[in-house]
Design a protein around this nucleic acid. Structure first.
Lengths: 232, 232
DNA sequence: GGTTCGTAAATCCTATAGGAAACAGGATTC
DNA sequence: GAATCCTGTTTCCTATAGGATTTACGAACC
C-alpha cells in the first residue's frame, strides 16, 4: 500500500518510527497474502496476540484498520474472519470496477507522467518478464508483486489522492484474487504483452491510447480468468 | 447517523448488537460532520475517552477505523488530527474523482434499478426540494443529508460492492467538503434541477442519458464551488 | 535577546485483569 | 430420538495501570 521500506533507524535520523500495531498490521497483511491465513478462517484476537507475542490491544487496532480493506470481516462480539473466497459474481464485479477506474488512471497518468515514473513502470514490466514462473507460490510470488506494482504505479502517477485511495480499496482485493482465485498464472506471455502495450501507449504520450490499452488488458484478464475459473 | 436506540432484544430477532467501539465511532463521525471537531484540531485519545466517559481502548479502535475515511489522520506516537480543510487543489482532485466514478454508477444503477430504488431516489429529490435552506447549519443540514443520500443511493443501486466501496471512500470527503468548503448552499434551485434531471434520466431507462446527466451535475457543482471559493 | 537545557505535564502506547458473551459438549427431559 | 438445559472453556470486550515519548515552559547560559 504505502511505503514499506523499513528505513533502518539510523541514529540521528528519527525516521517515522513505527509502533507495535503497525508491525502487527504488516504481519497480518503478509499472512493474508501468503495464504497462511486461509479464506474463511477465524482470526482470533487473543490467538494472534499469542502467536505474535504481543498483547491483544495492538492486534485489535491492526484488525480494525484491516477491516476496510475487505480482507477481514468483523462481527460484533464474535470476532474477525478472513474474507471468503471470491465467487464468480464477486470477480465479475471486481473487474467491472477495475474497468471503471483503471482506464481513467491510465489516461491521467499518461498526461502527468514524469520520466522517473516512466522508468519505474519500465522496471515493473521488465521484472514481469524476468520473474520466475514456476508452479509453487514462492516461485510466482515476485511475478504477482510486479503485476500489482505496475497497476499501483499508474494509479499513483495519476496524481489524484482520491482516485489513488479508490484504487487501493480495489488493489488489495485484486491481489487477493490473483492468489486465491483458483487460477495460477495462465498465458503469462500474453499478459506481459498487454502490460507492454500499456507501457508503450503511455510512452507515446497519447492518453486515449493509454486508456484503451488498459481497457484491453483488464478485459483480457477477465476473459482468461473466466475461462479458467474452476468453480461454477 | 443510524438509530441509536438500544433495539430491545426481542427473542427471535438477534439484532446485530453493537459494542462500545461502534458507538464511539458513530459519535466521532457525527462530531466530525457537525463541525464540533474542527479541521486541524487534535483528537486526543485520552481526551475523547474522558469526554465520552469510556476507556481509551474503544476510542483507539474507533479512530483506527475512522482513519481510512480520510477524516482523521494519524501520526505514530503523536496521535490523531482532524484532516485539514480542503485546498482548491484538493477540491479539484475530488471533483475529478467524482467525474470518474459517479457517471459509471449512474449508468449501472439505471440498468439495474428496481422500482423501490427509484422510489427512494424520488424521495431524496423531494426532500431536497422541501428542505429548509436557512443560513445556519442546523437549517440546511437536512438539505445536505438529502444530497448525500441521493448520490449514495445511486452508488448502492449500481449493485457492485467494489464500486460502492470506492464511492464511499469519496462520500465522506464530499460531505465534509459540503460542510467545510467555505461555500454555503448556492443556487439551490439550480442544483435541485440538476438532481431532478438525473432522476428523470434514470426513470427514462436510458443509461447513457443517466451518465450524461450525472456528468453535467458534477461539473456544475464544480463550477459553482470554484466560483464561490473564498480561499485562493 | 536568542538559544539550550531540564523539569513537569499531557499524551500515546502496551500489557494485564476481569466481566460478558459465545461456543462446545454432555446430561436431562419430553 | 429430539429438544432443552446446564456447565466449562474459549474468546471478545472494556477498564485500568504503568512505561515511553512528546510537548510545554521556564531557567540558565552565551
Amino acid at each position: 500500500m504505502s511505503d514499506p521500506s523499513p528505513a533502518l533507524p539510523r541514529p540521528g535520523f528519527p525516521v517515522s518510527r513505527q509502533v507495535l500495531a503497525d508491525h502487527v498490521y504488516e504481519a497480518l497483511l503478509e499472512w493474508l497474502m501468503d495464504g497462511r491465513l486461509e479464506p474463511g478462517a477465524a482470526v482470533s484476537i487473543d490467538g494472534m496476540a499469542r502467536e505474535l507475542d504481543v498483547s491483544p490491544t495492538p492486534v485489535r487496532e491492526a484488525l480494525a484498520r484491516l477491516e476496510h480493506t475487505g480482507m477481514v470481516r468483523r462481527v460484533a462480539l464474535k470476532g474477525y474472519r478472513v474474507a471468503p473466497v471470491f465467487t464468480r459474481e464477486d470477480f465479475a464485479e471486481l473487474m467491472e470496477a477495475r474497468l471503471s477506474i483503471e482506464p481513467v488512471n491510465a489516461r491521467l497518468a499518461c498526461e502527468r507522467m514524469t520520466s522517473e515514473g516512466l522508468d519505474a513502470l519500465k522496471q515493473a514490466v521488465e521484472d514481469l518478464k524476468t520473474a520466475p514462473r514456476g508452479g509453487t507460490f514462492a516461485e510466482y510470488r515476485s511475478y504477482l508483486e510486479a503485476d500489482e506494482r505496475f497497476h499501483q504505479l499508474i494509479a499513483a502517477q495519476a496524481r489524484n489522492q482520491f482516485l489513488l485511495a479508490a484504487y487501493n480499496t480495489l488493489g488489495g482485493q485484486i491481489q487477493r484474487f490473483r492468489l486465491f482465485g483458483g487460477v495460477g498464472i495462465t498465458d503469462a506471455e500474453q499478459a506481459i504483452a498487454e502490460h507492454q502495450a500499456v507501457l508503450d501507449a503511455m510512452s507515446s504520450g497519447d492518453p486515449g491510447k493509454a486508456a484503451e490499452a488498459m481497457i484491453n488488458h483488464v478485459e483480457k484478464v477477465r476473459g482468461r480468468a473466466m475461462a479458467d475459473a474452476p468453480e461454477d
